[in-house]
Write a protein that binds this DNA or RNA. Sequence first.
RNA 1: GGAGGGAUGGCCGAGCGGCUCAAGGCGCCUGUCUUGAAAACAGGUAUAGGGAAACCUAUCGUGGGUUCGAAUCCCACUUCCUCCGCCA
Length: 423
Amino acid sequence: MLDIKFIRENPEVVKASQVKRKAEVDLVDEVIALDEERRTLILDVETKKAERNSVSKEIGHSKDPQERQQKIAAMRELGDLIDSLDKRLKVVETELKDKLSAIPNIPDEDVPLGESDKDNVVLRTVGEQKQFDFEPKPHWELGPDLGILDFEAGVKISGSRFYVLKGAGARLQRALITWMLDLHLKQGYYEFYPPWMVKEEVMYGAGELPQFADNLYRDHLEDFWWVPTAEVPLTGIYMNEIIDEKDLPLNLMSYTACFRREKMSAGKDVRGMKRGHQFDKVEMYKYCLPQNAEIELDKMVADAEATCAGLGLTYRVLKQCTGDLGFKAHKTYDLEVWAPGAQEWLEVSSCSNVGEFQARRSNIKYRPEEGGALRFVNTLNGSGLGLPRTFIAVLENNQQADGSVVVPEVLRPYMGNLEVIRP
RNA sequence: GGAGGGAUGGCCGAGCGGCUCAAGGCGCCUGUCUUGAAAACAGGUAUAGGGAAACCUAUCGUGGGUUCGAAUCCCACUUCCUCCGCCA
């Protein structure tokens, strides 16, 4: 959510942002008009409330019964008027909030212009695309051949876009999760294990609702929404809280499963385990001062890169263009790893600075050390990393001619020193 | 799932229809005193919105209602605690 004052004072900036994002430009004028009406109503209704309060006090002190009755009658009438104005105000405020919530974050000036993810800018590529002296298999062949990945079983019990990891496969995934968490622990992140279902207001606060309701799973009897990312509960934990400036930045991390309907990508990436309805992810998250957001984002990208590098994966860092930039994001870097079997770059991390967009929705502020008014914190989130795609890359990059897969050295201690996964 | 009791400012806690738009205490900040500190004393100390400002309005778990007027009365919900039941 953007600051209504900012929109009021800089309508052209917001409109330009809407154009860049191919979002609705008229929304800006609608919001400004509603804000105007809202403020006029507030002025009116509050003047009347002030009058009612003072006259009511007079009634309490008044001894003359006739004067009392007269004033009570007048205030009854004024009260009715206040009621109707309050009702109108509420309608206007709800509408304003709805429209305001529908405006995406303003991209950083540094974000390149572009239409789609094809226009994202590659900043650097680390490592070489591995060459094989045999035809490398894609993971959807490699995994089943090794007996560690079972698509049929997933479909049987849950339907399409589900799979089952078995034996060394299940163990490899668990090793990846634990190793990643341990790595981020060394990088200075504090671990949380949050609920995987949250209330609607938390989904709203994190910027998922109402925009992305289509992509979320929910319980149909109670107010439970399955998290699409740990970013959601990690934002919710500090909802309505005030953080002391000296405690910033807060570097948090969490492992959760993530649940997404993937309606938008129906028919896309159906093969293999690249895009499922349920996937695991280790997430990094930061609360920081606005002036430090940029540098904290750089650190987070470096921390995610260290994860790819630690596994010996070839990866590249991209800067998202305006056409690909998420609704909430002010600026985003993507990390992609090379999958030699599937012959494609796989997005394993997306590190974003969302500015105060989520903090405003979730009401998360900090108390400045020099005093003065409370201010909204900035929040950052980044995967470190998404599990299935990392799993794919590990499998495909470390395969050998005989169909076995060498376990990356850093993971061996987490797998009972297993060196090679064989059929 | 059943029964009962709570939810008040950074924290503790009083209030139970107008004299409290929140007493008192703790903590914190400033000042006096002091070489400095402590103590003592004095003053200050919530958030949001509107307004050029003076100032006004809202907020006592949340949402409704009664009333000229609600922290206070009524209804619903949320949540915490105690006990019982069930349970990994």
